[in-house]
């Protein structure tokens, strides 16, 4: 669905009303995948906003695909990254393979969820960081609102990486938060290769919620060394719209 031309002035007006600082243009980070960027207002992820990412399916406990998705975004944002977590089980060489160099990341092991949220807010308010990741299980509305305001004021991208202890707790993902977009990333079987081996990973990336946009889901190839996603080769050649369709918001 292409944005209609006559709606654009109205959208701009709404954007001006919503923005805290109307003079500042909205900076976006495009994914470089047309089908994906077309779904996002402004043609990419808002750099001065909070985005929420969670793992789907069996990945809700480890959130591995979601964390790689976040790492890929941060790799392209640039600047120093503050990664606030409670369970220090990230393996830095893997982040490096997703494009996020180890000397760009500072980890904070912040005890519990409340510590992580406080730490992320401090990082967002700081203003000189490229991005801030908060690995949390619970994200209450108030906390997400604080993070969103901090991100908006200081122009830093915040990523709330939802990671639950048990799969049953993942139903919490339906609760409303103030995040600008909400993503669910789960692993899909990769395309069979002609020879024995394991090819590039493939994800189901669900855009569960986006403000001023419609939700959708995409089958994408996982991040490469520069953190870029890609359409699967069989889709890239044919019409991409075949796999991409409007989808009811799951929240």
């Amino acid at each position: 669905m292409q944005p209609r031309r006559d709606l654009q002035p109205l959208r701009d007006q709404i954007a001006r009303l919503e923005a805290r600082d109307p003079s500042r243009p909205i900076a976006v980070l495009p994914f470089g995948v047309e089908a994906l960027d077309a779904r996002l207002p402004g043609g990419g992820l808002d750099r001065a906003a909070l985005h929420e990412v969670a793992g789907g399916g069996a990945d809700v406990v480890h959130g591995t695909a979601a964390a790689l998705f976040a790492a890929g975004i941060l790799a392209r944002v640039g600047g120093q990254v503050l990664w606030c977590l409670t369970r220090p089980d990230l393996f830095a060489p893997a982040l490096q393979q997703a494009g996020l160099d180890p000397d760009r990341v500072i980890y904070v092991e912040a005890g519990d969820d409340a510590g992580v949220l406080a730490c992320a807010e401090e990082g967002l308010r700081h203003g000189a960081l490229g991005g801030v990741v908060a690995e949390v299980a619970k994200l209450p509305m108030t906390a997400s609102r604080r993070l969103q305001l901090a991100a908006e004021e200081c122009g830093t991208m915040g990523l709330a990486l939802r990671r639950w202890r048990r799969p049953a707790e993942a139903s919490d993902f339906g609760q409303p938060t103030a995040a600008r977009t909400r993503w669910r990333v789960s692993a899909l079987p990769s395309a069979p290769l002609l020879v024995p081996g394991v090819g590039r990973a493939r994800w189901l990336v669900e855009l569960v919620r986006v403000r001023a946009g419609e939700s959708a889901d995409f089958v994408l190839e996982a991040c490469d060394e520069q953190g870029r996603l890609a359409l699967p080769p069989e889709l890239a050649r044919g019409p991409a719209a075949a796999q991409v369709g409007p989808r009811r918001a799951a929240s």
Binding site: Y107, V108, G111, A128
Partner: peptide, 23 residues
């Protein structure tokens, strides 16, 4: 600026909580 952020977070979470991976 980064040093100040690190200071504030270290003061709150302890100096051992803020780490950087060294391959």
């Amino acid at each position: 600026d980064l040093a100040r952020l690190v200071d504030r977070l270290s003061a709150r979470f302890g100096p051992r909580a803020l780490l950087r991976p060294a391959p």
